[in-house]
Each structure stands twice: as C-alpha cells, then as structure tokens.
Amino acid sequence: MAKLELVYFAWVRERIGRARESIETQAATPLQLIEELSARDERYGAALSDVSALRVAIDQELADFDTKLTGAREVAFFPPMTGG
C-alpha cells in the first residue's frame, strides 16, 4: 500500500465535496485509482467516471491516466484548464 495525497479542483472538487485528502492505495495508475475510489463512494464515480472530461497531474506535472504512480506523492484530478 502506498500513501497518496489527492487534490481536486473546480467542479471535480465540488462533486467530491472536498479539496484534498490522504489515502492508502494499491492503484498503479490514475485510472486504477479512479476505479478504486469509485468503488468506495458514488461521489467519486460522479466526479471521475468520464476521463475524457478530466485531466490528471502527478506531483504537479500533467500526466496520462495510464502513467505509473510509482513514487508519486500527490495526484490531482481536475477539468480541462481555462486560463488566459
């Protein structure tokens, strides 16, 4: 089991109902992490089920949903960015 800090932004944060949390996980990728979280509570499914509407960052770098989480400390889920 690895310890991970999860952070959420914008409507992902609102649907999950919190901005951050610490979890223990066996997930090897963000996609597996989403499956694991969705099985825990339906709010995660509501926020994270459609990955085409999501972005993920691992340790504050944009990543893919099948990037390995080996050594990761912080994973962030959020909608596509709307800066500028």
């Binding site: 932004f9 914008a10 960052a57 944009l62 962030a76 959020f78 909608p79 596509p80 960015m81 709307t82 800066g83 500028g84």
Partner: peptide, 14 residues
C-alpha cells in the same frame, strides 16, 4: 505563451 497557458496552466474560471 498565450496558447500554452490557456490549456496547460492549471486555472479554472467560474
């Protein structure tokens, strides 16, 4: 810079 920060910098508008 504009093109990149519009879709790569983590900002969200409401």
């Amino acid at each position: 810079l504009m093109d990149y920060l519009k879709s790569r910098a983590p900002f969200w508008k409401r």
